[in-house]
Design a binder for these strands. Structure first.
Lengths: 246, 246
DNA sequence: CAAACTCAACTTGTATACTAGTGCACAAGA
DNA sequence: TCTTGTGCACTAGTATACAAGTTGAGTTTG
C-alpha cells in the first residue's frame, strides 16, 4: 500500500533518525500525497522496526509541520496550505535578505567556490532533466549562502521553510521546469554578493523568492486534492496576501 | 533532587505535552540549571508516569534546542552558547523588523488594545517586582505584534528564539531589572507602529532587540558554569560578532 | 425502509521489559 | 604510587503489551 514497503532501516544508526529522513523525503517528493493517512503499525512493519521509533520520528515530523497527529484518529500528511506557503516565503525573505546584508562583499573564496559548485550541479541536473538532483543543488545554494553568515542554525531554518514550499515546486517542476530561469537568478544573486553590490543582491534575492510561488494557483487548480483551499488562478491572490500589502 | 518532585501530571491532557510545558518553563527560569543532567527514569518518577511520555517530551525539547541527548550517555540541559544567542537576535531582528514593515500604520484597534494591555501588565509586574509576570507580558507584546501580521507561525517562531535568550534575561533581571527602560521601548515601538512612522518603528525595534544582550558579558562572568565559553566583559564581543560587522 | 444500536477493527497513548553501550569505582597488579 | 583490568550501575534505544478512544459496517428495531 505505502510506497515504502520493503526498505528496512540499517542497524548502524538510530532507527528513528533514518525514518525521519525517509519519510520527509517521501513527503516532500509527494510520494506520500498530502492528506494521506499514515498508520504507525504499517510504517513499523514497512521499516522492519517496532512502533516506538516510528512514533518518535512522527513526533519530529509533526513539529516540522509535515504531518498532523489527531489523537485516537490517525496520523496524516498535512495538506498544502497556501497561507502557510506565503508565510514561509515571508520568513525566508526576512531571513535571507538579512543574510545577504551580512555577507555582501565579504564572501570568502571557499564559500564562493561552494556556491559556484551548486550552480554547476544545477546545470548538470537541468541537462539530465533530473528534478530531484536539481532540487538538492537548489537547497545547497541557499544553505551555502546561509552558512557564510557564520550562523549555524540559519541554514537549517531556511531548509525547513523551503521544504514546506518544495511540494508545490515539485508539482510545477513536473509540468514545466524553469531550470534556466532559476539558475540565472541564482547566478545573479551570487554575482551581486561577490561584487559587493548590496542593492542588487537584495533585489535579486527578493525577486527570486517571490517568484517561487507564482505557480501556486495553477498547481492548486491541477491538484485540488492536495490543497486545503482552492485558489482562483485569475485572481491576484498571492499579491493581496503577500508582504507588499495587507 | 530535581526541583520537580511531587508534581504529577493531570490525566485530562496527554502527559507528554504537560511535561514539555513544565520542563521548558523550568529550563527557561533556570530552575533546571544549564549543564544539568536529566534522567528519563527520574523524570518519569517525578511526574508519575512511565519513561515513554518523558522521552517524547525530551525529543520535542531537544528539537527546540533546550536539551541535548547524547546516546547512551545522558540527557543534558544545554549550556548557554553566546554565539547561539547572537544568532537568535539576528533571526529575531530579521523577522520582527519584517513584521513591522508589514503592520506599520495598519494596526487595527483590537490589536492596538491588545498591545496596550501587555504594557499595562508590564507596569503592574514591574510595580510588584515580579520578573516572571513581567516576562510573560514581554512575550505577549512581541507575540501580539507578530500575530497582527496575519501569519500564524510567526509568533511561535519568535517565542522560540526568545526563549533561548530568556535564560540570560533571567540572570540579569535577578540583579538589576531595567523594567522602566524595557517598557518605554515597547511603548515607543507601539506608538510608532500606530502612528505609521515606519522608520521610527524599525529603529526602535532594532534598538530594543540589540540591547537585550548587552548584559551577556556580565552574566557569563557571574555564572560561568552556565555558559559554554567565557566572555571578557571589557571586550566589544557582542559588536564584533553581531550583524553590523563580520 | 429508515433510524438507532452494537460490536469489532482500527487508531494513538502509555506502561513495562529487555538490549546494548558508557563510565566510574574499586581492586589487583607492577 | 600509578596503571590496568573488571564489574556494576547507569544511560538511551527498542520491542511488546495493554489501555482508552474513534470509526464504520452490520444488525436490529421501530
Amino acid at each position: 500500500m505505502l510506497p515504502l514497503t520493503g526498505y528496512s532501516v540499517s542497524a548502524d544508526r538510530p532507527a528513528a533518525i533514518q525514518i525521519v529522513e525517509r519519510l520527509r523525503n517521501a513527503i516532500v517528493r509527494l510520494e506520500l500525497p498530502p492528506g494521506q493517512m499514515l498508520s504507525e503499525s504499517d510504517l513499523a512493519e514497512s521499516f522492519g522496526v517496532s512502533r516506538t521509533p516510528v512514533r518518535e520520528a512522527l513526533i519530529k515530523l509533526a513539529q516540522q509541520g509535515f504531518i498532523e497527529v489527531r489523537p485516537q484518529r490517525g496520523t496524516f500528511i498535512t495538506k498544502i496550505r497556501p497561507k502557510e506557503l506565503l508565510e514561509a516565503r515571508f520568513i525566508r525573505e526576512a531571513i535571507e535578505t538579512a543574510a545577504i546584508e551580512r555577507i555582501v562583499g565579504r564572501l570568502d573564496s571557499a564559500a564562493t567556490r561552494a556556491c559556484e559548485a551548486t550552480l554547476k550541479d544545477q546545470r548538470a541536473a537541468a541537462a539530465a532533466k533530473d528534478i530531484y538532483a536539481f532540487h538538492l543543488a537548489d537547497d545547497a545554494f541557499h544553505s551555502t549562502l546561509a552558512q557564510a553568515t557564520g550562523f549555524e542554525r540559519l541554514s537549517g531554518m531556511i531548509e525547513g521553510e523551503k521544504a514546506l514550499m518544495d511540494r508545490v515546486r515539485i508539482l510545477s517542476l513536473k509540468t514545466m521546469p524553469p531550470f534556466k530561469r532559476l539558475i540565472s537568478q541564482h547566478k545573479a544573486i551570487l554575482d551581486a554578493v561577490v561584487a559587493g553590490d548590496r542593492q542588487a543582491a537584495l533585489t535579486q534575492m527578493r525577486g527570486h523568492l517571490r517568484e517561487l510561488l507564482t505557480t501556486l494557483p495553477q498547481a492548486s487548480h491541477d491538484y485540488p486534492q492536495y490543497f486545503t483551499e482552492k485558489i482562483d488562478p485569475g485572481s491576484d491572490w498571492a499579491e493581496t496576501h503577500s508582504g507588499a500589502s495587507l
